[in-house]
């Protein structure tokens, strides 16, 4: 039985979304019962490794791809059935920005404004907002990737949407541009706009987003506020730095011999399964190896992401794009769960 739509302030709700691709090579489930829930006024991070189903989800949500199952709603309206009704309140860019190269930024946005019944005065406003005012009359084909990205964001903002969906908006931006984009996202959220942000720059997501959904192999593997997701994946890892001049190799070998999972870095090493850090000091001190630093490793979004999606690099192995952790099938589907 399909889950019911929850009555709370959800701007975006997806439940049990399915999409299967059939080809001569066989059947591939791009989305396998995916769920997502975004509340109003949030900046929501949508994370997943390459090929995990992020873009398929966004395309399906926006009516570009037909799903094989599940339910979706934007601003309380079931889509794709009511998509034409809500489209005016949704601004989106999906994957890399794509525009007709021979038109100027001004022409591009002006045509979109015409097509969407948006006042032409809005064109200049959004060009100003994304920093393209002075290049508005240049052909898009002369733009750098970062400038095209800014134009894409401008096109998504043109409608002054209630829900803004941005797929990799920082792609190609310079550091200044990334910071501007971060500020822009925050300002938009503060003005009441809900922003769904797909990105691989996890540090940015951690800084900008209120909540996240992590997808792997077409299923949701984590969701909630950034703090909650980090809290549920705190690790027992500790960072160990030895006194200068001490043989780090010998210390690592000693700890490994005692069952420690050690990862060696440039000037220190980490012990992943350090449930009792005192054990480390005791083992090393017995061999007269003394520590200069012993500190817990704080979980960050990147490490949680790598752990949940099973995409952490392994020495000597070359991970293929579809090799990700298979999330267990959710015990129960449902909006926002």
């Amino acid at each position: 039985m399909l889950p019911k739509v929850s009555p709370v302030t959800a701007v975006l709700e997806i439940a049990g979304l399915q999409k299967t691709y059939r080809s001569r090579k066989g059947v591939r489930k791009a989305l396998d019962g995916f769920d997502m829930y975004v509340e109003a006024g949030q900046v929501h991070g949508f994370l997943g490794p390459n090929g995990s189903g992020k873009t398929t989800t966004l395309r399906t949500l926006l009516g570009l791809i037909k799903p094989h199952g599940g339910r979706m709603a934007i601003l309380g309206q079931e889509v794709p059935h009511h998509l034409p009704t809500v489209a005016g309140q949704v601004g989106a860019i999906v994957e890399s920005p794509q525009f007709f190269g021979n038109f100027t930024a001004n022409d591009t946005l002006s045509l979109l404004a015409d097509a969407g019944d948006v006042d032409q005065s809005r064109v200049a406003e959004v060009l100003e907002l994304v920093g393209l005012r002075d290049r508005a009359k240049d052909r898009v084909k002369t733009y750098s990737l970062g400038m095209k990205q800014r134009l894409a964001v401008a096109s998504a903002l043109l409608k002054d949407p209630k829900l803004l969906i941005l797929d990799e908006p920082a792609n190609g931006l310079d550091p200044g541009g990334i910071r501007e984009m971060r500020t822009l996202m925050r300002n938009l959220a503060e003005s009441g706009m809900t922003v769904v942000l797909s990105s691989h720059i996890l540090g940015e997501i951690q800084l900008i987003c209120d909540s996240v959904t992590i997808i792997s192999a077409g299923r949701r593997v984590a969701a909630g506020s950034v703090a909650d997701v980090l809290a549920t994946h705190t690790s027992s890892a500790v960072k160990v730095r030895l006194e200068p001049g001490v043989d780090m190799g010998a210390a690592v070998a000693l700890l490994r011999a005692n069952g420690a999972q050690v990862a060696v870095e440039h000037d220190h090493f980490t012990v992943a399964n350090a449930g009792n850090p005192a054990q480390i000091t005791r083992i090393l001190a017995e061999r007269e190896i003394y520590l200069a630093e012993l500190a817990p490793v704080a979980a960050d979004l990147e490490s949680v992401f790598l752990e949940l999606t099973g995409t952490a690099p392994v020495e000597g192995q070359h991970r293929q794009v579809d090799e990700t952790a298979m999330a267990p099938a959710p015990a129960q589907g449902g909006w926002g769960q």
Partner: peptide, 18 residues
Amino acid sequence: GAEWNSGGMMNLLLWRPQ
């Protein structure tokens, strides 16, 4: 053809999903 090729069609369908 150029609309399809450049991605303009997809852009337009995001605006007018009909």
